[in-house]
Structure formats: structure tokens, C-alpha cells
Design a protein around this nucleic acid. Structure first.
Lengths: 224, 224
DNA sequence: ACCTGAACACCGTTCAAGT
DNA sequence: ACCTGAACACCGTTCAAGT
């Protein structure tokens, strides 16, 4: 994605700003102050330049965010030792992707970019697809399986981080508790039954369990 | 959520704007022109008022969006005849929620609000939890199961609608195709093997299959 | 109580010009 | 080729005042 600063073909004014510098400064802003603070103007002043100079190195803000995601995953998504058993390899790969993304909630706005999140993650995608094939799925089923895993992962992170963001701004959570406290046990008996445990149940981290469950379902469907 | 216009306790200037009118006009803007065009200023002029008048009826834009989601689900999420078999009831309820949300992609920014999307959906949540209990899960397992289903659903819609939005703005899809065309079969054999089919495979709507797979996994895990 | 005008503190992006 | 200044066309929200 970031072309490795090829030798300049034509001569002209020497660049004062590099793509790398832009991404690096953007990363610092995001990690230190949050995505909300990353604006083209803020980034420009951080670099000691003008907003417009950035548009010579980036098509638009969207491209900056994708670059940032690539940079982050390349930096943190290291290939681990994976279990030999194909099913465990699938679970471990999916967990690795999930862990890295869950650790940087700012990614949420970008990560839904496509069925694959970033080129740095391709190796993990390979492991998941290959693991599923190793369990008896056809390559086509394995791709669909990977997609199901990706949907689950992206959904888990999106829901959990926006819920957390909302909890920080209090009062809206109170409304939800109110709704659950006022449930009519005649109409919604199951929800009324678990109403007092709802918050604690939905705050638990059950992502790994869910992932395992999904993988089990995939294998049961593919290799009956 | 929208208190049913209770009789006014104190007298004063008669209101010229009602919460209902605000939501109605906002809905029209969103359905006719897209979420991006829904701004407080635009909404105010549509109503024939000023931006500030809105803040007398709404806390902020966030509240407007939640109101809009409630309004939409109350309007479109009608309780269907559900299958008697508990597993099929789970699948049918989840599918109903998914269909309604998938039909209005603008919701994506709001729908991740919490573990439940809207009070109008509570009945469907009840059906899912009850169906899972009917299949042998404990109430706690059923709630976790519902959550897994919600993550999957939210992820599917988020990923698919942002992917579609991106496809409208072309060129970034081309980059992904380039990546897949250039895959090294030595390093990533499985991905290289399906590379030419990747786009068609990941564009297929396999949401229902995935949902069934997940539910199967949940039942296998809960009632071994 | 309800609404308005004017302002604050910002955005992303484009255009025409400078070196 | 690379960068700048000034501007365009917006945002959400607050404050103080009006009726």
C-alpha cells in the first residue's frame, strides 16, 4: 500500500513531508488523544505545515485512516505459533485478530472497510481458511466460514466499543436499566426473568466462547 | 421513549414544534436524501425554524438518531407468525431483525447502541432467548447466545453496508482485487486458490446460512 | 415556556497562485 | 513538484436575549 519511497523519476522541489511522517504523526495523535482529535488541520499543524500540503501525499482523510490501520496491524499483528489441530488453528487465528483490534477501539470506523481488514492480516485469513478446509470444508465453504467469523468479530468490537463509549457519557445506560426494570413478566417472561442479571450478563467477555461456538457450528455444517 | 404528549403541567408559550414533527421531518430527510444530509441546521430549515429551537425538544443529535431508530423499528418490525419449533423460532426472529435493519443501511451508525437495538425489538429478543431455552440452554446461556446472534447480525450489516458504500466510490475495490491477483501461492496457498472467486464468494448473501450455523453451534454447546 | 440571532469553535476540501 | 493563503461550504452547540 505505502509504496516504498521509490527513486524519484522527475526532479523538482524536494519534498518536505513524507507519507511515513504523516502516518507517524497521525498515529501519535490517535494513540495519545483519540480518533476524534485526528483532523487534517490538527495533523497539518502537528507536522508544521498546512492542511493543503497533506493532500499532496494523501487522496483524502479516508486514505489516511486505511493507512493508519495498515500501519497498526503491521506493527502489532505478529505471527504466533499456532496449534497443529486445524480447528484450534482457526480459533487461535480469529482470536489473534480479535485481540489486536479490540485493543485499539479507534479502529472501528475503518475496520469494516471490507471482508478483509488489512493486508497485514492476510496470513491470519489464510490460516482460518486453511484450518476450515483441514476440518473437511470445501474451499468455498471455508471462505463463507471465514466471513461468518469476520462478521462476528467486527460486530463484537463495534457493539462493545460503542457501548463503552456510551457508558462514559452515562445517562443513556440508565434508560436501558429502566426499561428492564419495568418489563412486564406477562408479555416478556424470559427477559423479565433475567432482567436483574442482564447488565452483568451482557458485560461479560464471552467473545472467545462465541467464536468457538461459531466454529463448532461451521464444522458441524460442513462435515456432517 | 417518546412520552405520549402528556397534558402540559405548566402554562406558557404554546409550542410551535413537537417532538413528533421533528422525528417525522428527520425521517423524511433520511429516507429521501440519506443520513449524511440529516443535520440539525437542515432539519431546522425543513421545519421552518432555527437550529436552536430543536435543542428545546432534543438533548442533542444523538438522541434524534435513537428516536429515529425507535420510530423506524416500531413502524416496520411487525410481529410475524413464528414457527412452533424453538430452533426455528430463534432463526426466524433473528432473520426478522436482520431483514428490517438490512433494509435501512443508514441505521448502522445508531444500531450498535447497545446489546439490544431498540425497545420495539424486545419482543424478538424474548423469542430468541425463549427459543434457546426451549432447546435446552439455561437462561444465562440463552442470553449469551442472543448476544452472539446480535454481534453476528450487527457485524454483517455494518460490514456489508460500508463495503457497498465503498463500492459506490469505486477505486478502493480495485486495490483489493489487485492484492488478490498478486497473491503468492507459495505463502498463501488457500487464498491464492480462491482468489479469482473471492469477490463473488464474499458478495453472496450467506447471512441466513451463517445465522443457522451459529444457532446450531449454540445448541450443540448448550445441550450436548 | 418557547423560540431567535449571533457567535464560538470547529470541519474537509478546492482553487489559484507562489517557489 | 511541492507547498501556501484564502476561501467555500459547511458542521454541532452555547449564550444571552426576546416574547
Amino acid at each position: 500500500m505505502s509504496q516504498p519511497s521509490a527513486p524519484r523519476k522527475t526532479l523538482g522541489r524536494p519534498p518536505r513531508i513524507s507519507r511515513e511522517e504523516v502516518v507517524e504523526k497521525a498515529r501519535r495523535i490517535v494513540t495519545e488523544e483519540g480518533v476524534d482529535r485526528l483532523t487534517m488541520r490538527r495533523l497539518a499543524t502537528e507536522i508544521g505545515s498546512t492542511p493543503m500540503a497533506l493532500y499532496h501525499h494523501l487522496r483524502d482523510k479516508e486514505e489516511l485512516l486505511v493507512l493508519l490501520l495498515d500501519d497498526y496491524t503491521a506493527r502489532t499483528l505478529h505471527r504466533p505459533e499456532l496449534p497443529a489441530h486445524p480447528r484450534e488453528r482457526v480459533v487461535a487465528s480469529a482470536t489473534a485478530i480479535h485481540e489486536v483490534l479490540a485493543a485499539c477501539p479507534w479502529i472501528v470506523e475503518v475496520l469494516t472497510a471490507d471482508a478483509l481488514m488489512s493486508t497485514s492480516a492476510l496470513w491470519f485469513v489464510e490460516q482460518i481458511v486453511d484450518g476450515l478446509v483441514g476440518c473437511g470444508l470445501t474451499p468455498e465453504q471455508a471462505v463463507h466460514g471465514y466471513r461468518a467469523i469476520w462478521y462476528y468479530t467486527a460486530g463484537e468490537i463495534t457493539v462493545r466499543t460503542t457501548a463503552a463509549r456510551r457508558r462514559a457519557g452515562d445517562d443513556r445506560a440508565t434508560y436501558r436499566e429502566q426499561v428492564f426494570a419495568d418489563l412486564d413478566p406477562g408479555e416478556l417472561p424470559r427477559l423479565a426473568q433475567v432482567a436483574d442479571r442482564w447488565t452483568s450478563l451482557t458485560t461479560q467477555d464471552t467473545c472467545l466462547d462465541g467464536l468457538r461456538t461459531l466454529v463448532n457450528g461451521l464444522l458441524a455444517a460442513g462435515a456432517p
